[in-house]
């Protein structure tokens, strides 16, 4: 675990968010540390995914969304008018619950982003593809089938391919919205191992419904309930001696 002196990368200050008239987040203030894994937990509809999607402005795509408060990444207000959202999303990659590879080859899935960024030379792209597939612990399984369709991979492999694709554009932050909830236990274990390895180089924020997963992979855990951040602390504290009864009731399954 990173210690208290590790740098703060993401700062959310008094963030509230409405979907039309419905308030989904209420005055959430949180700091997320560099090269740590931060897990968001809470019951369905508590606002954890909404809060995650703030960090690469995915909520902008939803009609009727209104946001107050501020979110900064490395000191930059990511909601200022002049911000280049495409550049933000390069810097802040996202992995979704359901793997969504392009209907292209394994190679093209990873090379797609760098190619759009202007990298044309085959040897450069080859190097990026290999690096990212190795980083996502997929290389050994696909190196002999790089030009086969990505849709022929298993669900777990597809999810790791999506992580490789996100890594290809050199992000600094990876957002993961229930990345293993549709996977079998073995694939889930591979994704969790991968998360553990990737935090050496990346700041990772993960939403999960699986409490054991949060305790296994994360350094910090935030518990959300009805749009509020209830408690946020180091994961070992949250899972051995949370300060608030609401947190304890939720993580021990007494809730509701």
């Amino acid at each position: 675990m990173e210690d208290e002196i590790s740098k703060i990368v993401i700062r959310a200050a008094a963030v509230s968010l409405w979907y039309g008239a419905k308030r989904a987040l209420s005055d959430v203030t949180m700091e997320i540390r560099e090269k740590c894994v931060t897990a968001f937990i809470g019951p369905s509809g508590c606002g954890k995914s909404t809060f995650l999607r703030l960090f690469n402005r995915m909520n902008d795509l939803i009609e009727g969304v209104r946001i107050t408060g501020s979110v900064t990444i490395d000191g930059t207000d990511i909601y200022r008018d002049s911000l280049d959202v495409v550049d933000l999303r390069r810097k802040v990659g996202m992995i979704f619950q359901k793997s969504n590879p392009f209907p292209k080859s394994v190679y093209e899935n990873v090379a797609y982003g760098p190619r759009i960024q202007g990298i044309k030379r085959k040897s450069d792209l080859d190097a990026i593809v290999e690096r990212c597939l190795r980083q996502s612990a997929l290389w050994d399984e696909v190196k002999d089938g790089l030009y086969h369709s990505a849709l022929g991979l298993s669900g777990g492999q597809q999810q790791r391919l999506c992580i490789a694709r996100a890594l290809a554009v050199k992000p600094e932050i990876l957002l993961m919205d229930e990345p293993a909830s549709a996977l079998d236990p073995l694939s889930t274990a591979k994704i969790e191992e991968l998360i553990y390895t990737l935090k050496t180089d990346y700041t990772i924020v993960i939403v999960t419904h699986n409490m054991q997963q949060a305790s296994r992979v994360s350094d910090y855990t935030a518990f959300f309930y009805m749009g509020e951040l209830v408690e946020y602390d180091k994961t070992p504290v949250m899972f051995t001696s949370p300060k608030l009864k609401r947190t304890e009731d939720y993580i021990t399954g007494r809730f509701g």
């Binding site: 409490m211 054991q212 305790s215 899972f239 051995t240 001696s241 304890e248 993580i251 021990t252």
Partner: peptide
């Protein structure tokens, strides 16, 4: 059961 928090203690 993988107990946590007060259950773990």
């Amino acid at each position: 059961r993988q107990p946590v928090a007060v259950d773990l203690r």
